[in-house]
């Protein structure tokens, strides 16, 4: 028992020290207040739809999202899932979104052609090559957004903070080059991306779910953070739901094994 206590003290110390260890010298992140955080947190579908709108109208002009297919949007727990169309390839909203994109393809005779997108297509990249992306963006290619919330410490909160992190006074000693911006949430503080999300940058659809939601910079930042969180980890809801069942099962199983253990060892002095 005493040893168990020692061990738990040691692990408590390690876990307590972890946030301090994890800090990388950038500003403390602001919370995106995501409904998807925590064991019971789930995505807000209307928010995912707004977030997708921002990705499409703002982010996609520079950032690729190449691991995602249009069909992902209509998958269960995705922004445009509809129970009538369990197969997302048949989802009319997804089909319409895909159709709005031009996809480069090769026809049966080997000629380069351009055709309308299908749900099975991947999101096309805004630049033909990495070199082109670099040349058009001051020498640094904008990162792909497929797993961006997994690839940054703080995840969705990082995205929210970064979007909201413009307009701060540049501290002494930080040199912001031409075409660059200062953002305290970005590693090093100098970022190639200019401020993107401002009030009324997009116009949200006038739906029941969006009632009373204004496209302020903060709202847009929260929405894109939610969408990118979903895009990085589309099975999050399934994972959390399955986890609940697994934990419950293991708990009951543990009770059964505990009582079996007690009953089998009852007559053994040890």
């Amino acid at each position: 028992m005493r040893k168990l206590l020692t061990l738990s003290l040691i692990s408590a110390a390690i876990f307590g020290a972890m946030p301090a260890l994890a800090s990388t010298g950038t500003a403390k992140l602001m919370s995106a207040e995501g409904s998807y955080e925590g064991m019971f947190g789930r995505f807000d579908r209307a928010q995912l739809q707004r977030g997708f709108q921002i990705y499409k109208e703002v982010c996609a002009s520079c950032h690729s999202m190449k691991e995602l297919h249009f069909r992902n949007l209509g998958e269960k727990y995705g922004p445009f899932y509809s129970p009538e169309h369990a197969n997302p390839n048949e989802n009319p909203v997804v089909k319409a979104i895909a159709k709005g994109y031009v996809i480069a393809d090769v026809d049966a005779s080997g000629n380069d052609v351009e055709r309308a997108g299908l749900p099975s297509d991947r999101f096309p990249a805004p630049f033909a090559s990495d070199a082109q992306a670099k040349a058009a963006n001051g020498g640094v290619a904008p990162p792909d957004l497929s797993v961006i919330t997994k690839a940054r410490m703080g995840g969705a909160d990082y995205i929210y903070s970064l979007m909201m992190g413009y307009g701060h006074a540049v501290p002494h000693g930080v040199v912001v080059g031409a075409g660059k911006s200062y953002n305290p949430y970005f590693a090093g503080g100098v970022i190639g991306m200019a401020q993107q999300l401002t009030d009324d940058r997009v116009t949200y659809a006038d739906t029941e779910a969006n009632k009373g939601i204004k496209p302020t910079a903060a709202q847009e930042s929260r929405d894109i953070a939610a969408f990118l969180q979903w895009a990085s980890d589309p099975h999050q809801t399934e994972r959390k739901a399955a986890g609940l069942g697994v934990m419950l099962f293991l708990f009951v199983f543990a009770l059964f094994t505990w009582f079996s253990y007690q009953s089998i060892w009852r007559k053994v002095e040890h």
Partner: peptide, 13 residues
Amino acid sequence: VVFLMVYAWFVFY
């Protein structure tokens, strides 16, 4: 089983 519970928490959450 107890160890798997801790493991499962990390796997799912």
